[in-house]
Design a protein around this nucleic acid. Structure first.
Lengths: 259, 259
DNA sequence: AAAAGAAAAAAAATCGACAAAATGGATAGC
DNA sequence: GCTATCCATTTTGTCGATTTTTTTTCTTTT
């Protein structure tokens, strides 16, 4: 109870600086809250009390409420009229849904990018992969330490893949869904590279190579498979087949889709 | 300037009632604003001044700002920090992007629905089509009058098609994209059925029949083609091919896709 | 006359306080 | 002993006023 009021004058100035950087206090609250939720700093369906948040971020109700409002449409916060806000609840079905949506959106965007991307795009993909690869190597298979840095590079790689798709909306939606899945990843990251069952970086490399070779079929297959891992890590392999049947058009039911 | 202050005590009570219905004033403001933007009541990139909106809806700044904040993440409102809000600008490229995203999301959802839907779902599809069909017939080819009713039925039909897809996110996204496109439709609805070039209800019927026959290939082809019409109506047929190449996976480049 | 700067006006963002609603707990009734 | 009702407390949602920032207007200077 004491540490909630631990915002003294010094902190207040700091917040002011950070707010100036972010543009406004609302923006500041929005970013901090979003990060805190994604980082799993609040438990799944936890109540987000205005009073607490005011104290936590050192500002008054208006910016906090506006930030919460913005996070509603993003799927990070849920609100019940007249009884406040809570962190959007997590569940196996929810992650399955996120995974499915990612497979739909990201696959489509990747297909477009492969068709439309130019040399500069290929360069960016290569660069993003390289940075991610080096980072993981440097940590010697233990990305636990610098989780935030790894996440950022991993996200950047996936973003680079579809950057040339030409659709702001698909890019935006990919980013949003990635962040939603990030929430689930945080719980399970600690065991991640010790699990030899899946060679994440190997998959990334294969994916990149297929992309650079403009082999759309292979790339889409790899991506689809790759996206399922978050779910498998969190809730086991079995139920992953729940969303198993391929997302959409084509594939023409050649086979029941190996992934 | 006078009609902006035209909120007297009587109106204020009315607003209170409506708010009670909506749950809160914020919710009320959110719905009204959203409707007004979709209905094209504000010009494309128009400034949304808090003072104006306060007067227009008869409430104070907080609910208005929260409503605006929520609309940001939805793509209906844009904000520049420290200099307020404006209606998200419209453009040909933007509608092309919406169309592309719809083709990606709605196609995937429809494929899933066709695979997973049960008898009850088929019933709902049939019912939604019937209501839409009857409404259009009753108006004798002039849906101009009751535009809102038509829109609602049309949206309900498209929603019914994918209702069985099993993915809350795909459903939600479809709805959001539909509404974003709605903004563009409003400008061009007045000439719509007189244009014999496209037989909208015929397309709807064909689509429904393909769906009920569980003919995924045909249904997806029809849907993809159908979704392009909003763009064609607004900006002409040529540029529609811009986003022409199919959204994503599969189709295996059998043919360059007739649509 | 044009550009730069200062002052005034307008608008946005934020705050502190209040009113309405919900929650939790105690008491009364069955 | 259990349920229902009322009251105290907490919390949300809303407002009006204040502060900060931007925009406009009016000087002043070159």
């Amino acid at each position: 109870m004491n540490d909630k009021k631990a915002i003294d004058k010094k902190d207040r100035e700091e917040i002011r600086d950070l707010a100036a950087e972010a543009g406004s206090l609302t923006e500041f609250a929005y970013r901090r809250l979003r990060e805190d939720i994604i980082a799993g700093h609040f438990p799944s369906g936890a109540k987000l009390q205005i009073e607490d948040l005011k104290a936590r971020y050192g500002l008054s109700a208006s910016p906090v409420r506006e930030a919460l409002s913005r996070l509603i449409s993003q799927g990070f916060v849920a609100s019940e009229s007249q009884r406040g806000f809570r962190v959007a609840p997590m569940s196996a079905e929810d992650l399955a849904d996120i995974t499915l949506a990612r497979q739909v959106v990201e696959s489509a965007a990747l297909a477009l990018a492969i068709r439309k991307g130019d040399d500069a795009w290929e360069g960016e993909v290569l660069s993003a992969f390289h940075k991610l690869d080096r980072h993981v190597l440097r940590l010697g298979g233990r990305p636990v330490q610098d989780l935030a840095a790894f996440s950022e590079l991993h996200k950047a790689f996936h973003a680079a893949l579809i950057a040339a798709c030409g659709s702001p909306r698909l890019i935006e939606e990919q980013s949003r869904l990635y962040d939603q899945a990030e929430r689930y990843r945080h719980g399970m990251m600690y065991s991640f590279l010790s699990d030899a069952e899946v060679d994440l970086m190997g998959e990334h490399r294969a994916l990149m190579e297929a992309v650079l070779a403009r082999d759309a079929d292979a790339a889409l297959r790899l991506l689809h498979h790759h996206l399922g891992h978050t779910y498998e890590f969190c809730f086991g392999k079995n139920a992953a087949e729940n969303s198993g049947p391929l997302p959409s058009t084509g594939q023409k039911t050649k086979r029941p889709a190996r992934s």
